[in-house]
């Protein structure tokens, strides 16, 4: 187990390093130029532009820039955002809390609800409830998250006035203590519901097909032949075998949700990292973008590592390898 862990950590670090290099080149190769965007529409002179390039170090060859970036990283310096003129680390830390709140709650909710619905569908296979669930799941699966978000705002916020349209807190009426928690929760409800609904279908279908597959395994016939009731077989043996693929999907979506939530964060003006990232892309804010990508790469490796370890704990067949 110790060697397994060490191997996982080394490959994780390597993955992050490769991600840094790839992201660096991708960002710089992509069309658009932060200096031109900074200078705006005032037809700056070429001397002015030249001065800006030199000031931000963008006049040097790409490889030199990359080397400088990595050296800075090793010193704990993630750079300063061009557009916000603030350290990248503090910008990311500010937005990470709200992002994790939204991502974690919706991911866990989708995992729990999707798996439960999938189990239900598998047990009622071919009957009308199963068919209905599969139609509805395709409907939500094919809906763009931002569109669902807009519809939800239109219905529950603009028309019915049940819930706030955007933001994380009511700025006009700041609350303290329990009132603050309640305020955040009411603001969280719509974006969280949107992201949960979008993610439920994958768990539903995965669980349903996984259960169906496990039900056909030879050991299920063994247990049936021993006189074990279908209910006991399901609870004691089908569940643990069927949950494994779902767990992998949960890990993957948890890892990518930070970036994936961007569109929903924009629609609801949620002060999260996803929204920060889209702003950084639009303005070609290289240091900020690199910082956010680095954070995503790290969270993906850490979460997949945790899921792998969890998997090995649940499935004894993995431990040997």
């Amino acid at each position: 187990m110790k060697r397994y862990l060490l191997k996982r950590v080394t490959t994780g670090l390597l993955t992050v390093l490769i991600a840094i290099v790839l992201n660096f080149f991708l960002i710089h190769i992509a069309p658009g130029d932060p200096i031109r965007i900074m200078a705006g529409m005032d037809h700056p002179s070429s001397e002015q532009l030249e001065a800006l390039y030199v000031r931000y170090g963008l006049d040097k060859p790409l490889l030199v820039q990359l080397g400088q970036y990595i050296v800075n990283l090793l010193h704990g310096d993630f750079g300063t955002s061009y557009t916000y003129n603030k350290p990248v680390v503090s910008l990311i830390l500010e937005t990470m809390g709200p992002s994790i709140l939204l991502a974690l709650t919706s991911c866990v909710l989708a995992f729990v609800l999707g798996t439960l619905l999938g189990l239900f569908a598998a047990r009622h296979q071919g009957r009308w409830m199963d068919n209905l669930l599969s139609y509805v799941s395709y409907l939500f699966d094919s809906m763009p998250p931002f569109w669902l978000g807009l519809v939800a705002i239109l219905v529950f916020a603009s028309t019915l006035h049940w819930l706030p349209t955007s933001g994380m807190v009511n700025l006009r009426n700041p609350q303290q203590g329990f009132g603050y928690v309640l305020d955040v929760l009411t603001h969280l409800l719509l974006p969280c519901a949107t992201m949960t609904l979008i993610q439920i279908p994958q768990y539903l279908r995965l669980t349903r097909s996984s259960v169906t597959q496990v039900m056909q395994e030879d050991y299920i016939i063994t247990f049936r032949a021993t006189g074990m009731s279908e209910k006991t077989i399901f609870r004691r043996y089908v569940l643990k075998n069927a949950i494994l693929p779902t767990l992998t999907a949960f890990g993957i979506s948890l890892a990518y949700v930070v970036a994936g939530a961007a569109l929903v964060e924009i629609v609801y003006a949620w002060p999260g990292t996803g929204r920060l990232m889209l702003n950084a892309i639009n303005r070609r804010d290289y240091p900020l973008l690199m910082g956010i990508y680095l954070m995503i790469a790290i969270s993906v490796s850490v979460i997949t590592m945790i899921v792998d370890i969890l998997y090995a704990w649940l499935d004894p067949r993995i431990r040997l390898k």
Binding site: E217, Y219, T226, K240
Partner: peptide, 21 residues
């Protein structure tokens, strides 16, 4: 009756029991 009086041994014994228990 099952297993108390009438038991069986099946073909593919490698899969005769759950792999994760």
């Amino acid at each position: 009756v099952r297993w108390q009086e009438l038991a069986a041994v099946f073909q593919k014994s490698m899969n005769a029991l759950s792999p994760v228990h």
